[in-house]
């Protein structure tokens, strides 16, 4: 029985050159206790979907139901808490006061001390909110979201401004919260995050859902790797027949092999072509995965950085 449902959601905004269709028909059913990741590149429609889930935006078409209520009713009943994408804190309160102020608005908040402890903000509880570092601010924002003790916790790219350690600590807390039977929906453009912390991932691109399933399946689907090597004078169809290779491309002296199994592919490559050098194996970026899934380019606005999932120093040949 799905307690949270988004059905046929459509939303467009006025743009400089005609309407921008941010969300073009999104259906998601979420059961109580599930942790669901909305996964997609920038501009996929994740934040717009989340705004509609929270009742901050009215859909042009479709309907949202949260525990059998409209989003605004669910919010008014204190069933929803969240951490929005952009956001800082209001000034002139201490961390503890700010958390207490937010707790006061909810019918069944968590104990302030428990939340400060949980989010690692206990030692900065007496500091004024305008004196915090970026990482501390993020932790306090997490505390503000958690203290409301909601049945549905919505997080819109919550870890964007966090460092690796902060990220790990943040998700540890969220996992603990989910273990209390709470429902969590979060948006992310990190495949790793969806894989590590969600039961299920909903892949979005161009305002549509392109895949929806358990995270390990989604990961297998989009988590292909690319092997790049300098190897002149070898025919592409020879390379394509190697074990673990699904496609091959030439870029000057180099070849780029898309691999279904990169371990098998590199063994086969070196066995057959020992001249191959400068070998790099990187996880395919989410964008590349989306291109594969949707069969079209991800149409990122200019200036938006492409995100390579799990790729260190990824220099994917373009």
């Amino acid at each position: 029985m799905s307690e949270i449902s988004l059905r046929g959601l459509v939303k467009s905004f006025k743009g400089p050159s005609g309407p921008i269709e941010a969300v073009r028909g999104v259906d998601i059913e979420i059961a109580v206790g599930e942790t669901v990741a909305l996964l997609g590149p920038n501009g996929a429609g994740k934040s717009t979907t989340i705004d509609m889930l929270l009742g901050l935006l009215e859909p042009d078409a479709g309907a949202v139901s949260v525990f059998g209520r409209t989003p605004s009713d669910a919010v008014a009943a204190g069933a929803v808490g969240g951490m929005l994408q952009t956001g800082s804190l209001i000034r002139d309160l201490t961390v503890r006061e700010l958390v207490a102020m937010m707790a006061a608005l909810y019918p069944a908040p968590l104990a302030i001390d428990e939340v400060l402890e949980l989010t690692g903000t206990a030692e900065i509880a007496a500091q004024r909110t305008q004196k915090l570092s970026g990482g501390q601010t993020q932790r306090v924002r997490a505390a503000v979201a958690l203290v409301s003790n909601p049945e549905l916790l919505v997080l819109d790219e919550p870890t964007v401004a966090m460092d690796v350690e902060g990220r790990r600590a943040f998700w540890r807390v969220m996992r603990e919260f989910a273990a209390r039977g709470k429902t969590i929906v979060f948006a992310t453009h990190y495949l790793e995050e969806a894989d590590a912390y969600a039961d299920r991932a909903v892949l979005m691109a161009h305002g549509r859902i392109v895949a929806d399933g358990p995270t390990n399946e989604i990961k297998a689907m989009v988590g292909s790797r690319t092997l790049r090597a300098t190897l002149p004078g070898v025919e592409l169809d020879v390379l394509e027949r190697l074990a673990g290779v699904s496609a091959a491309e030439r870029r000057g002296e180099a070849v780029v092999l898309t691999c279904s199994d990169s371990d098998a592919a590199i063994r086969a490559l070196l066995a057959a072509h020992s001249a191959a050098r400068d070998i790099e194996i990187v996880a395919a970026g989410l964008e590349q995965a989306f291109v594969a899934l949707t069969g079209e380019d991800a149409e990122l606005p200019p200036g938006v950085a492409r995100v390579d999932v799990g790729a260190r120093g990824a220099d994917l040949a373009r």
């Binding site: 929270l54 009742g55 901050l56 919010v75 008014a76 009943a77 204190g78 929803v80 808490g81 969240g82 929005l84 952009t86 956001g87 800082s88 804190l89 209001i90 937010m102 608005l105 909810y106 019918p107 503000v144 409301s148 919505v154």
Partner: peptide, 17 residues
């Protein structure tokens, strides 16, 4: 200035009347 830091939206997802 509260709106500029997104606090207004944060308040909208609380039961604050």
């Amino acid at each position: 200035s509260e709106r500029a830091v997104g606090w207004n939206r944060q308040l909208r997802i609380t039961p604050l009347q």
